[in-house]
Design a protein around this nucleic acid. Structure first.
Length: 492
RNA sequence: CGGGGUGUAGCACAGCCCGGCUAGUGCGCUACGUUCGGGACGUAGAGGUCGGAGGUUCGAAUCCUCUCACCCCGACCA
């Protein structure tokens, strides 16, 4: 036993960090606050991109790319948005280095090369995009514009955690423009549904759809919708957001169109995004003390084949069987890896692929050759069974399906167990402290109460659930009347 | 930006308080051999500006000054 991960019970965040590193997903770089996403971690991101991108295309969106830099004057045009991000912007002030005249062989910023106007490194792209949309839109015939971009953004975070919060991260941001408020609102909700669909069907993570409170919403938006997922430590993670921007950005950037009636009106907008943070959520939702557990739909490798052999003769005999299985499984659309390294023992490989969360493992040894069998092991339940080699190609696809469903079921049950309606302030504090998870509580709807709860307990309103039933009640803190329960939790 | 901490081999660390010969340990790495159905073992090896600069001293990883970087805890956040 060489690599042992800190258990979740012992120290959840330590477990997370070690897992990310040991599973080869990412590491801290020598650049402050920035991470290196390693090939295996990036492969998961590519799977996420493929899934989301297809869903965006299916809902009528197209991809484009906008600049990394935003001139300060453009950035500040929408005041609330600019203010909201001001504290965490990286700014380019110079465009040239020169040799240090001190003769130390070093470079220095050339003071002569100061930019006329500073460039903000985008923390999000509304500004440059709405500046561009102004040129694209004159008539209702130019609408809607349904554009998405896959990009990196920079937010100068004080404290960073791999995938969950880094100074630079990868994401997609959709930016749409519409002729009517109703259409933009519909788009906002459509994309929220896309995110929820993705989270549940690809990530196997159940989410709660809701609206953000005034205090938690995106600066510059009229309404912010989100999906909230629950991690195994009982903390919430926002997994995607969709904003109804109203005419805020259209007004700030003077984007108007002529309607069918000939009248000039400001354009209605939305924006929506999901980031590499999803990878963090994926890890924290399913994985265990032995390593990652990946849902088949996002696993870079579906099946790994581990040969058990003493010598070259055995290996080549096993390879024949393995090659045949690989062909069959690949034909079924699966990604398969045959690990025929002779530098590591089977036990080492078993542990390694468990660490990396490969959903299905096939082991083939001399005994299997004699009997025409393979040993099949599934990562999620750790079950092992022997089966006929000829059945593999038909059984594995449905097994993967079952794993995908099982992970979702398990996560859903966990969330249900960890969602607690509370009716008094004492109960609120007690449940939050002792159990954690989601708390459903009445709230009087004021920012003051929200802030006070946050200050006293660290719990925030994750969202006002969309499907919450109307229910008369009293605010858990103030006792003032309330019409529905909202979702509270400590959050990442 | 406050408060704490750490920089010694690819990684994790010991040594520092109380200065002393050639700077260690584990993992990893290289070669060879034996192993191989749950993280193998043996033997032999390679690998270091002790974060950087300056100072004290016969002598500094160790003491002093300065400096840089990173990590953790808080306030802020996808």
């Amino acid at each position: 036993m060489a690599k042992q991960i800190t258990s979740r019970a012992e120290d959840y965040s330590q477990w997370y960090v070690e897992l990310v590193k040991l599973a080869d997903l990412a590491e801290n770089s020598d650049v402050r606050g920035c991470m290196v996403i390693k090939p295996y971690g990036y492969a998961i991101w590519e799977k996420m991109q493929q899934g989301l991108d297809q869903m965006f295309k299916d809902t009528g969106h197209v991809n484009a790319y906008f600049p990394l830099f935003v001139p300060k004057s453009m950035f500040e045009a929408e005041e609330k948005n600019a203010e909201g991000f001001a504290k965490e912007c990286a700014i380019v002030t110079h465009y040239r280095l020169k040799t240090d005249p001190a003769g130390n062989g070093k470079l220095m910023v050339d003071p002569e090369a100061r930019l006329e106007e500073e460039l903000v490194v985008r923390p999000t792209s509304e500004a440059i995009i709405w500046n561009t949309y102004k040129k694209w839109i004159q008539s209702h015939r130019d609408l809607p514009i349904l554009v998405n971009q896959w990009a990196n953004v920079v937010r100068w975070e004080m404290r960073t955690r791999l995938f969950l919060r880094t100074a630079e991260f990868l994401w997609q941001e959709g930016h749409t423009a519409h002729a009517t408020a109703a259409e933009a609102e519909k788009e906002t909700r459509t994309m929220l549904d896309v995110y929820a669909d993705f989270a549940e069907n690809f990530m196997a993570v159940p989410v709660i759809k809701g609206k953000k409170s005034e205090g938690e919403k995106f600066p510059g938006a009229i309404d912010t919708y989100c999906i909230e997922a629950l991690m195994q430590d009982g903390k919430a993670l926002q997994a995607g957001t969709s904003h109804f921007l109203g005419q805020n950005f259209a007004q700030a950037f003077d984007v108007k169109f002529t309607g069918k009636d000939g009248k000039l009106e400001y354009v209605w907008g939305t924006s929506w995004g999901a980031s590499t943070r999803l990878i963090g959520g994926l890890i924290m939702a399913h994985s265990d003390d032995d390593g990652l557990i990946l849902p088949p739909k996002l696993a870079p490798i579906h099946v790994v084949i581990v040969p058990i052999f003493k010598n070259d003769q055995e290996l080549s005999a096993i390879s024949e069987v393995a090659d045949k299985l690989m062909k069959e499984l690949k034909a079924a659309g699966l990604s398969v890896k045959f690990d025929n390294r002779d530098t590591h023992k089977p036990g080492f490989k078993f542990a390694e692929y468990e660490l990396k969360g490969v959903p299905v493992r096939l082991a083939i040894g001399p005994r299997d050759l004699e009997q025409g069998t393979v040993e099949l092991a599934r990562r999620d339940t750790r079950e092992k069974k022997s089966m006929k080699a000829t059945d593999v190609a038909t059984e594995v696809p449905s097994l993967l399906d079952d794993i995908q469903k099982n992970l979702y079921r398990k996560a859903l049950k966990f969330r249900e167990d960890m969602t607690t309606p509370v009716n008094s302030w004492d109960e609120f504090k007690k449940v939050l402290e002792e159990k954690g998870g989601f708390l459903l509580a009445h709230w009087d709807g004021t920012a003051e109460t929200e802030a006070k709860i946050k200050e006293e307990t660290k719990a925030t309103i994750r969202c006002i659930p969309l499907d919450a039933p109307v229910e008369k009640g009293k605010c858990v803190l103030t006792g003032n009347p309330s019409n529905q329960r909202v979702l509270f939790a400590k959050a990442y």
